[in-house]
Structure formats: C-alpha cells, structure tokens
Amino acid sequence: MLEIKDLHAGFDGNEIIKGISLTIKKGEIHAVMGPNGSGKSTMAKILSGHPSYEAMGGEILFDGENLLEMDAEQRSLAGIFMGFQYPVEVPGVNNAEFLRMAHNARRVKAGEEEIDPLDFDDLLSEKMKTLGMEKKYKERNLNDGFSGGEKKKNEILQMAILEPKLSILDETDSGLDIDALRVVSEGVNKLRNENNALILITHYQRLLDYIKPDYVHVLSDGKIVKSGDKSLALELESQGYDWVTTAN
C-alpha cells in the first residue's frame, strides 16, 4: 500500500529525514517510536502533504501512485488520514458541519451522492457514542477550546467518519487519560480491517497494549535505526532509547 524509498526530507533546506525506507502492506500496523526531535512528526507531515515540508530525495508510492505529486486534498481523497499531534483550532467552523463537508468530499470523489443531512447526523451520533463523546461536540467549533484529550478524540472521530485506507496517528495517545485511551483504542480497533493500515507514532508502549502493532520502528536523527516486532517496544520502555541510538 505504501512504499517509502530512501526518503530525504525537511523544510527550509534543513534535512530532517535522512534516508528512510519503509513498506507497509494492507492490514498491517506499524508503530514508530523515537526520541523527541527525531523526525517522527516531520515524516507524518511529509506523508500528509504539508506545503512547508519538502522531499529532498527518494520517493513515496501510495497504491502505486507517486504521492509526492499529490496535494493534501488529493492525498486525503486517495485515502490517507493524518491524526495530528497538535490539531489546530478553527474557531467559527462548526464541527458537525465540517465533518459532513469532509465526508461528502470523500463520497463525491467515489462517485456517490452527498449524504442526507439527517442521515449524516445519525452516523455522527453513532460514531460519537462509540468514542464516548458528548453531543455538545457537534455544536462546538472545530477543536476550538477543546482540551488536549478532546482534540485527540475529535481526530479519531474524523478518522471514523472518513474511513481511510492508511491512517497516520501522531501521538494520539498523548493527552488521553487511561480511560479515554481505552475508548479511543477500541474505536481505532473497530475501524481496522484487512484492507486498511495504520502507522502509530508514540512514545509509550502503553498504547501498544491496546492496539497491537505488527512492526515497531525506532527513528533517531531522521533514520530508522532499528526495526522489530512488538517486543521491541517493551525493550525500549525498560532500557530507553540510548540502547538503540548508541548501539547504531
């Protein structure tokens, strides 16, 4: 589904990602861990098409298509979803209305008709319920004044509404208490099937107890310095990153 080949990338001419290769197949979950500033969010932003970040070498193929040639909208419509580490607040844009617009953009792309507003309201209510979100979040403006945890839930709500093929969740677990983490993880697990894939960026092995990865990669200074299975996360938790970064 996703093939990253020797990717070099950064912004303003600074190279942050210094040669990453990674292949993700349908149905897989990949966890990406690594110290602060190692380039995890930069990689996620490159994947989602942030205009300030540029690829300086290598390529990314998504379902065989050159991802780097698509803009953010096209990537989203192609099925890529980015759950942001720090979702922006958009005052004045109603949450439910925005979700409906996003949902409809996807439907129109698929050649379907726009959803009836009442049907969408039902769909939204159902998805919110599974994430333990109160109704009032429909009326509020997009992320406006939301707590850190509320913003993260709202990201997963968007993921649920958009049903992407590939989701990149950048520290979705940070800011969630243990109960919220459980609810959100269950929500993410419900959305999984053999045709979609997940990249989980996290600092904590705790998340991986709920959403079990097939692979764990450690990023350090813009490179993947170690890859392994789930047990790698446990080792990292007990030994710290120095163990992998210095060994390399």
Partner: peptide, 11 residues
C-alpha cells in the same frame, strides 16, 4: 488551519 482542512479532503 488551511492545511488542516485540506487534509480532510476539502479543496
């Protein structure tokens, strides 16, 4: 904000 909305499929 502009980028965020585009990542959700809005032109």
């Amino acid at each position: 904000q502009w980028f965020y909305l585009q990542t959700r499929g809005l032109s």
